[in-house]
Design a protein around this nucleic acid. Structure first.
Length: 354
DNA sequence: AAGATCAACAACCGCAAAGTG
DNA sequence: CCACTTTGCGGTTGTTGATCT
């Protein structure tokens, strides 16, 4: 025979709903004097018109002195996501790894924030796998962007030709003077053939090497063949990637291997479907559908979270819905790009890379 | 300014396992 | 072993304040 969930609730006069400060003080005073436990008889002894279960919940989830309240840190966010990928909705087990946080608080935080955040970036919070429809949406978004870029590029090429006195139908490329090189820099960021890049993701050419869909441990290794990953990828230290249920910081850049390590509390991390673009050197490019977990930047331009010194990045994140670019400070890299561009024709479309 | 909607959080409910006499 | 109580857990709902229209 099962007891009712709250044995005293049949009695009239038992209070429900939010606790008042006076009730909290009564409960605290009683527990200070007698300790917790024996919840059934506690309310009467403590002078509370509550059921014992309600008192226990209030104590364990709110009044206990060893509870930390307030904003979750990015480190805690990461831990929760990692553990949820591993353990599922076992909130008490997750809470055991987060000192001073209650399972109820973690559960609420997951349901109201983290779950939405993952959904927003195209990760199914139940499976921790990318959602196909989200990938398609991203692809459409990026296709629009690519189309706009090509149109702008074509327009600028037409304008530059007009300025140089060439007819629009001329098949001859304009002379490569400094002006054209400048245009090349502005209108033809290298290797932005994102459609092909994303196609590689969608068609699964670039797969993580987790045996199943669960995170096996806080440290995993992702492997690629050289063919899949023709350029060494330099992970930005303390960047994190979310993909195929893998979370962690990408810190290794050896050919064909990306190692996912544990988190770093003081650094921002990025969640998204990230990949390098082939054909450029290790410190070249990445496309990242990103979320700034620190929620401190409304744009990725100039963001210190990217290794801006050597990277060109494009992405759209939680706090903004437009592409932003972050040109680094490493002029050598961009000078090299300009040198490359000086050696190719300024055709209005197409990339020299793909 | 007022009502509607949303987000965040606290609390409740039901179930099950563990404990006790 | 049984009947009952206590405790723990996870899903869900209710409340409140902020934001939007």
């Amino acid at each position: 025979m099962r007891q009712p969930p709250c044995p005293q609730k049949e009695k009239v006069g038992l209070k429900k709903g939010p606790w008042t400060p006076e009730e909290d003080e009564k409960l605290l005073a009683y527990i200070r004097q007698h300790g917790d436990g024996s919840w059934r008889g506690l309310p009467v002894k403590a002078g509370l018109e509550r059921c014992g279960k309600s008192c226990r919940l209030r104590w364990t989830n709110y009044l206990r002195p060893d509870i930390k309240r307030g904003k979750f840190s990015s480190q805690e966010d990461q831990t929760i996501i990692q553990l949820h990928a591993l353990l599922g909705n076992r909130w008490s087990a997750i809470a055991a790894h987060l000192p001073k946080r209650t399972d109820n608080e973690i559960k609420n935080y997951w349901n109201t924030r983290l779950k939405k955040r993952l959904t927003k970036i195209g990760i199914d919070p139940a499976t921790h796998k990318p959602k196909t429809d989200a990938l398609t949406a991203n692809l459409n978004h990026m296709a629009q962007w690519e189309r706009a870029r090509l149109e702008a590029e074509a327009r600028l090429v037409r304008e530059s030709r007009q300025q140089l006195g060439l007819s629009s139908s001329s098949s001859l490329p304009p002379p490569l003077n400094n002006k054209n090189v400048a245009f090349a820099h502005l209108t033809k960021p290298p290797c932005l053939d994102v459609l092909k890049a994303w196609q590689r993701v969608v068609t699964g050419l670039f797969t993580f090497n987790t045996a199943d869909n669960n995170l096996q441990s806080p440290t995993s290794t992702l492997n690629f063949t050289e063919e899949m990953l023709p350029v060494p990828y330099v992970g930005f230290n303390n960047d994190a990637f979310v993909g195929n249920s893998v979370y962690g910081n990408c810190v290794v850049s050896t050919m064909g291997s990306i190692e996912i390590l544990g988190s770093s509390p003081e650094n921002a991390w990025w969640a998204g479907n990230a990949m390098e673009l082939e054909g450029y050197p290790a410190d070249a490019l990445m496309v990242c559908n990103a979320v700034d977990q620190h929620q401190q930047s409304s744009s990725m331009e100039g963001s210190e979270n990217f290794d801006a010194g050597t990277s060109y990045a494009t992405g759209f994140g939680e706090n903004f819905d437009a592409y932003a670019t972050g040109f680094g400070e490493n002029n050598d890299y961009w000078n090299n790009i300009l040198d490359d561009l000086a050696n190719v024709s300024l055709s209005p479309s197409g990339s020299s890379v793909f």
